[in-house]
Simulated assay, not measured.
Amino acid sequence: MAHDGAAALARTPPKPYFHRDLGLVVDLGGANAVSKPLGIELSGPTAQLVARGYHCVALPIVAARTRVLVSWGINTLTGEDFVSTGFQDGRPNPLPSFERTDLYFTA
């Protein structure tokens, strides 16, 4: 992106975009996860480890990483998600019920 900005300022053509797909990671909560790093299909706890590792590394601030790691540690010790929307229990909750959007919006 910086190259495109510099090219626009210099009135030169930007570099062509090239996308390199490294795979996907999806943590579904509990021991459920899927991931496909570098084309290798994984599922279950192994995929969860890859997904959570990626998400932790992707966080730019050490404080955020610490909060996430502590939350995952609590989840491991207690056996359930500390924050959950309930969809896995068959009792989906609307966004306002766990985000407390009622504090910000009025009817």
Rank of each mutant, 00 (worst) to 15 (best):
L59C: 12
H19R: 11
M1C: 09
I61A: 12
A63N: 07
G29C: 05
G29M: 09
V50F: 01
P94C: 08
L103Y: 03
F87N: 06
I40F: 03
L9E: 14
L28C: 04
W72D: 02
C56T: 15
F105H: 15
C56Y: 13
K36C: 15
D27M: 03
V70L: 15
S43I: 00
A31H: 11
P45R: 03
Y104T: 15
R91K: 14
V25E: 03
M1T: 08
S84H: 04
T46P: 03
W72P: 00
T12F: 00
V25G: 10
F87M: 13
G30A: 04
T101D: 09
C56L: 15
A33F: 02
T101M: 14
V62E: 15
F87D: 05
G53E: 01
E80Y: 04
H55S: 05
M1N: 03
R20T: 08
R11L: 10
D89M: 06
Q88S: 10
F18S: 06
E80D: 03
I74T: 09
V68Y: 13
I74Y: 04
G73M: 13
S84Q: 08
F82P: 00
F87W: 13
L9V: 10
V57A: 04
M1F: 06
A64R: 08
R67T: 04
G53H: 04
V57H: 07
G23E: 03
V50A: 08
P13V: 03
V26E: 01
A10Q: 14
R11Y: 04
K15S: 13
A64G: 15
Q88G: 09
V26H: 00
D21C: 14
P14G: 01
L95Q: 03
P45H: 01
F82Q: 11
A7P: 02
I40V: 09
G90K: 02
R20P: 04
N93E: 10
P60L: 06
A107L: 11
I74Q: 11
T66Q: 14
H19M: 05
P92G: 01
R67M: 10
G44I: 06
I74N: 06
R91L: 10
A6N: 07
T12D: 05
A47L: 00
S71M: 14
A6E: 12
P13C: 01
F98R: 07
A8V: 11
Y54I: 05
G53A: 05
